[in-house]
Amino acid sequence: MEKEQFAKLASFNKFALTPAENERLSAALDTALDFLVPLRDWQAGDTPLMVYAAGIAPVYRTDRVEKIFSREQILANAPEEAEHCFAVPRVAD
């Protein structure tokens, strides 16, 4: 896999990788892509897609408010908190 493409994949997934990881993951992805070649080369024609499992039918919720969780519960796991919000470094506009 080309370094540039690899870097894009790592960047999209927000992974900071060590050089050793770079090498191993690059090789692993190459293996994966080789594995997928038969699929990539298969002529699909206009075969329909199966997006949803069988038996799935439309389901809706009633438009009603139910407050089950306090904001303390929501913020309980926050690594950093400020003024009842999740705190992160100042993000550029």
Binding site: I74, E80, A82, E83, H84, A87, V88, P89, R90, V91
Partner: peptide
């Protein structure tokens, strides 16, 4: 929404 606190150098996330 993000609220910014430039003094503290943080952004605060309100969902």
């Amino acid at each position: 929404k993000l609220l910014h606190d430039d003094l503290a150098g943080i952004s605060m996330v309100d969902y």
